[in-house]
Design a protein around this nucleic acid. Sequence first.
DNA 1: ACAAAAGTGTTGACTTTACACCCATGG
DNA 2: CCATGGGTGTAAAGTCAACACTTTTGT
Lengths: 224, 224
Amino acid sequence: MRKSNALYKNQGIHVITAIFTVEQGVTKVLLVKRKNEPYKGDWILTGGALYNNEDLETGALREIEEKSGIKNIDIEQFKSFGRVDRSPVMRMVAVAYIGIIDSSRVKILRETTNTTNADWFPIDKIPGLGFDHEEILNEALKYLQSKIITTDILKSLFPNGFTLPEIQKTYEAILNKKIDRRNFRKKLLSLDLIEDTLETRKFEGKKPAKLYKFKSTIKNKNVF
Amino acid sequence: MRKSNALYKNQGIHVITAIFTVEQGVTKVLLVKRKNEPYKGDWILTGGALYNNEDLETGALREIEEKSGIKNIDIEQFKSFGRVDRSPVMRMVAVAYIGIIDSSRVKILRETTNTTNADWFPIDKIPGLGFDHEEILNEALKYLQSKIITTDILKSLFPNGFTLPEIQKTYEAILNKKIDRRNFRKKLLSLDLIEDTLETRKFEGKKPAKLYKFKSTIKNKNVF
DNA sequence: ACAAAAGTGTTGACTTTACACCCATGG
DNA sequence: CCATGGGTGTAAAGTCAACACTTTTGT
């Protein structure tokens, strides 16, 4: 039977999530510091080994909570990673997810059973990461950038709505480029993703800005 | 250690590929018939268990060759599947790929060590599939449709070039819709993906059509 | 009253869509 | 000579990119 075959023995699955946030126009990702070998003392993305009794997404969410205390976030699978030597301990394939949350609304656990620290790192100031997590993080960012234009993936960054200047700054942070204000507004409003609340909120100006929120329904597009 | 923990024991990785072709305007996928339990006698996509000494893509290619005889094709990872009960034998997570080839240029093995048959099935006439392969196939088709417009993913369908009427029929088969001939040509030519050879070839008409081929370089696009 | 950000419209360039006629070849 | 699919152009609508001035508020 299979278990006796060395070709298949001792395989496992990692579920890894790159959790992003944007603070004052700076895109950051949550990293945790490993307490144990391998890669003891290195920073890595939240994640760990999948249990037999849980689906992939369930496992990813459990790992996020175990390593950071963050519960119940929306995550989206984007790619799997399986280089033979990506883990030095045994053969592990990683199924990777991204999540995006408002960091000011969660309290992260600094220390847990398997980690000695946790923090938000600006994406242009990432330390060397354990395992293949630098590669995973790079792909995660690319995926995030490709999705923010036409989806409501930023929804959970703004649980209490957002003003247009505010969300534009977020777009600019994630895409790492400036966008014309008038064109940005026209585009975002035309996508049918967001709607006006009747409230206003102050952001950077003295004049209060209109408050918007993402609609509950999603819409996709085709080319032909 | 890990191996003694029932939460992690006996996990494995499937590498599964949905191989598509288009024959006379009909999109088809390669299925193989299982020789053994579980799902003995059921049709499934090509694939199987990943070895410890191979990367994901290598394993997917080996499985394709073992189950169909097809060698060295281009494949692209699109999603992973990990429902707890997706395999009745042990906990398996599937990393899924798509491939697309010209079926007339390969000879598929009907019977192998683990399969009793292999054949191309039109995508609207798929029998019930073993494991979660119906779900994987559905996602594979969606992925393929999302990619053909702006990439050269069809390249390997036309190793000897193609005429515009010919490739348009392929687009229509995969997207399952009619496209205006003049607009299709303008768009495809404008994408800078294909180039004129100086030859012609007959397709459906009596008048020979110009022969094109995909360029070797790829180009992608952004929104903002 | 002024500083600072919020809010708004128009024009030209480009892209997309819809649509009809001539061309080359085989029979 | 005619039937069949191959090949082409144009106009109208829509989208995208560039650009400057007015409004609201706090101080």
